[in-house]
């Protein structure tokens, strides 16, 4: 197994994530975060989750960037430059150790695409075998989201509606 595509992508992801954390100007950080989302969308597409890649590309690198930039326009220019204090010693030592622990624990995860893993043996085969006959929908993801798990999706829609309402209540200032 070669990593000719994954390895440069991983390096770009780490570089953009680190850049967004270390850059001094908040506007630059927002734009670097947008490019990070774009690389993450490439990762999703590479893993075969094209629907998630779509959402990541549109929301992560498009919509979220616009929201961040509009927020930065609304605040004082001197507030967009941040002075970062050096991290405490405990974090510098502890967080890499935690990462090593997580890498060690990741050894026990089932391999990617393993047909015998619990995630692939429970309800996934039922959806894959029956969704086309049940719903005439070739895209299994859509069939699961909008039919088999429609109540979940309804509640997600409620969450998004609530988020819009909360922004409206907290931020609107054009009282007529």
């Amino acid at each position: 197994m070669t990593y000719s595509f994954e390895l440069p992508l991983l390096i770009l992801l780490i570089l953009t994530a680190g850049g967004a954390m270390f850059v001094k100007d908040l506007l630059s950080a927002v734009l670097i975060l947008g490019s990070y989302s774009f690389f993450l969308a490439l990762v999703w597409a590479w893993l075969g989750a094209v629907d998630v890649a779509f959402v990541e590309a549109v929301v992560g690198s498009g919509l979220a960037t616009v929201f961040f930039v509009l927020t930065l326009f609304g605040i004082e220019p001197r507030d967009t430059l941040i002075r970062r204090t050096p991290p405490p010693i405990a974090a510098v030592v502890g967080l890499p150790l935690l990462g090593l622990l997580l890498l060690y624990a990741a050894n026990d995860l089932p391999a990617f695409g393993d047909p015998a893993s619990p995630a692939s043996t429970y309800v996934s085969p039922f959806y894959l075998e029956n969704s086309l006959a049940d719903t005439q929908t070739p895209n299994v993801v859509t069939a699961v989201l909008m039919d088999y798990r429609a109540f979940d999706t309804l509640m997600e829609t409620v969450v998004i509606y609530t988020a819009g309402m909360a922004c409206w209540l907290l931020l609107r200032r054009d009282a007529r």
Binding site: D51, V58, N139, T142
Partner: peptide, 13 residues
């Protein structure tokens, strides 16, 4: 969205 990637969420966004 029922025949390819996509759907209501991405189309709406």
């Amino acid at each position: 969205g029922q025949h390819g990637p996509g759907g209501g969420f991405v189309g709406g966004v």
